[in-house]
Simulated assay, not measured.
Amino acid sequence: MATAGPEMYRKEKSLPLKSSSAALYNNLSVLSAPGRGLACFSTVHGPSLNLVSVAEDGSGFSQRQLQAKEGGMAVSSPLLTQAAWCVLPSRVLLVLTSQRGIQMYEADGSTMVYWHALDVTEHPPAHSVFARGIAAAGERFICVGTSSGLVLVFDIPPKGTNVTVSEVLDQHRDAITDIAAELGRAPEGAGDLVTADDAGSLCVWSSGEEFALLCKIPALGCSCSSVRLWQGVVAAGYGDGQIRLFEAATGVLHVAISAHARWIYALDLAPQTGKLLSGAEDSFVHVWKLSRNPDKDDIEIQHCHSECVTDTQVCGARFCDPQGNSFAVTGYDLSEIFRYSRAP
Results as ranks from 00 to 15, higher is better:
residue 219 A to K: 07
residue 164 T to P: 08
residue 213 L to A: 10
residue 213 L to F: 05
residue 209 E to D: 11
residue 170 D to G: 15
residue 239 G to T: 03
residue 229 L to N: 03
residue 164 T to N: 13
residue 173 R to V: 15
residue 212 A to M: 13
residue 167 E to V: 13
residue 222 C to R: 07
residue 226 S to Q: 04
residue 219 A to T: 03
residue 213 L to S: 08
residue 208 G to N: 08
residue 208 G to K: 01
residue 174 D to A: 15
residue 184 G to S: 03
residue 215 C to R: 09
residue 203 C to S: 10
residue 184 G to T: 13
residue 199 A to L: 09
residue 200 G to A: 10
residue 223 S to A: 09
residue 153 V to L: 08
residue 234 V to R: 01
residue 174 D to P: 08
residue 226 S to N: 04
residue 230 W to E: 02
residue 217 I to H: 09
residue 220 L to E: 06
residue 186 A to S: 10
residue 206 S to E: 11
residue 243 I to D: 09
residue 152 L to V: 14
residue 165 V to A: 14
residue 186 A to L: 07
residue 190 A to N: 00
residue 216 K to P: 01
residue 237 G to A: 02
residue 189 G to Y: 00
residue 214 L to W: 05
residue 224 C to G: 00
residue 232 G to V: 00
residue 210 E to I: 14
residue 168 V to A: 15
residue 203 C to I: 10
residue 209 E to T: 13
residue 240 D to V: 05
residue 190 A to S: 05
residue 218 P to V: 08
residue 212 A to K: 12
residue 175 A to D: 01
residue 177 T to S: 15
residue 193 L to S: 12
residue 152 L to A: 13
residue 227 V to Q: 01
residue 160 G to Y: 09
residue 227 V to P: 04
residue 171 Q to E: 11
residue 153 V to T: 12
residue 199 A to R: 06
residue 215 C to P: 12
residue 168 V to N: 14
residue 165 V to R: 13
residue 176 I to K: 09
residue 171 Q to V: 14
residue 182 E to G: 10
residue 167 E to A: 15
residue 192 D to W: 04
residue 185 R to L: 05
residue 194 V to S: 10
residue 228 R to I: 08
residue 224 C to F: 02
residue 182 E to H: 04
residue 188 E to H: 07
residue 199 A to G: 13
residue 188 E to I: 06
residue 166 S to T: 14
residue 182 E to D: 08
residue 177 T to M: 13
residue 225 S to I: 00
residue 223 S to I: 00
residue 234 V to W: 07
residue 197 D to T: 09
residue 237 G to C: 05
residue 212 A to F: 10
residue 163 V to N: 09
residue 175 A to F: 04
residue 179 I to H: 00
residue 169 L to D: 14
residue 179 I to P: 00
residue 194 V to E: 02
residue 217 I to M: 01
residue 214 L to F: 09
residue 154 F to H: 09
residue 191 G to C: 04
residue 239 G to D: 03
residue 206 S to T: 14
residue 213 L to M: 06
residue 239 G to S: 01
residue 201 S to C: 11
residue 200 G to N: 06
residue 227 V to N: 03
residue 224 C to I: 00
residue 211 F to P: 11
residue 235 A to C: 09
residue 197 D to N: 15
residue 210 E to H: 11
residue 190 A to M: 03
residue 172 H to S: 14
residue 207 S to T: 15
residue 171 Q to L: 08
residue 228 R to M: 03
residue 162 N to G: 15
residue 154 F to E: 08
residue 228 R to D: 03
